[in-house]
Design a protein around this nucleic acid. Sequence first.
DNA 1: ACCTGAACACCGTTCAAGT
DNA 2: ACCTGAACACCGTTCAAGT
Lengths: 234, 234
Amino acid sequence: MPDQPQEPRRTPLSRDRVLRAAVAFADAAGIDALSMRRLAQELGVVPMALYKHVANKEELLDGMVEVVFAGIEGQVPGSDWKGAVRGRILGARATLLAHTWAAQVIRSRTSPTPAVLAYLDSVIGMFRAGGLSTDLTHHVMHALGSRVLGFTEELFDNPAGASGAPQDDRAQAAAYEAMARQYPHVTELARSVAHDRRSVVGQGCDDRFEFEFALDLLLDGFGRLHGEGWTSTP
Amino acid sequence: MPDQPQEPRRTPLSRDRVLRAAVAFADAAGIDALSMRRLAQELGVVPMALYKHVANKEELLDGMVEVVFAGIEGQVPGSDWKGAVRGRILGARATLLAHTWAAQVIRSRTSPTPAVLAYLDSVIGMFRAGGLSTDLTHHVMHALGSRVLGFTEELFDNPAGASGAPQDDRAQAAAYEAMARQYPHVTELARSVAHDRRSVVGQGCDDRFEFEFALDLLLDGFGRLHGEGWTSTP
DNA sequence: ACCTGAACACCGTTCAAGT
DNA sequence: ACCTGAACACCGTTCAAGT
């Protein structure tokens, strides 16, 4: 008799299945909840079984980034370099928004995985195809920084620091007054944002608008330098 | 007889001493090595003694950021808004370079601590003093993102992925060849950087140049929009 | 040869027992 | 009232014992 397993083990484990399960788990429970032990449990497997398919947790995280980056869209054929880069980066942004943990994991890696390299290669290629020199393209890529991957460090979640324990109206007004005295410019800005968006305080900003505002400002600046024949060593 | 401690306990513990010890420890051993237990050991104290001065590790990290931001210089009096902001941000960058772990810790916090808020308030005040509208200043702050704090996500440590196990020359050449085929644009860029800097492959880039390149590009863009009377709601 | 339970060396934090 | 040792509920990973 062949040695079939008695327990109904759904599917044989594979590196791909491990990575996809990890991505799904992080999507659902967050990256902090992801541990080797919990992932194993999710797969109905003993923790050490995972180490057959990934060398360690670092490699698991790298693999998760690979899975995510494999799904990036945004090749816009027939546009100039500015439109091409813009479309590609917004495509990356859309993908990363679908996996809220991904930006954090990418940040924690020190060297890029193949899929990330392939993505970057395609963006660099767009600048080069547009006629930008390797010199300018190099500095341009640095200036984009993590924005080229579709995310940026937003400084805070809420513009006016609306966190904290619930308070009665009087205490809240007093706290607001104290804040306005200590941080007048921050408060002014927060108030104007709330007013502009005709909303309650602390709703937050239009992330997509802010991302495109900065991206277009940078791309326009790149175009201007390119037009002037800019070089780093004059 | 008063109840003096028999053991020669150097200095009575205080919140400030705990925070400064934590900063010094992270400076020396890195942020990953910092644990409540190791910090207590460093201070010659039982782990639970720390919890008298900080509620938990989160509060410890917040406090460490406060200590670092209290030391930021860079108020340049008598310059226009562009020079003032530039000087202040480069001051923040100098401080963060002295505490390599700080950027990572700031990133992990969701809401800003008072010293960070005070710093941001001063930068916003510089834009406002220069005549920029609250509307433009708001989007400008978003466009700067973490750069306003003096750091940016650099994508990798080494431009050409020079990591990996040591190899003989032939294997290395083959790996390089394979890389050039798979990521032609990345390779071209890495090669041109190495050539421009007349150095061995993988020395890396001039971080200060890259930071200022992007900062000045953004500040010039802000100035242009300001001059045009830009508004987000035309 | 393959698989895996127990163990190791850590965490941050709670809690009850000691002074 | 204050302080603290032991304990709890976790980690990632090693390793030796079992099949």
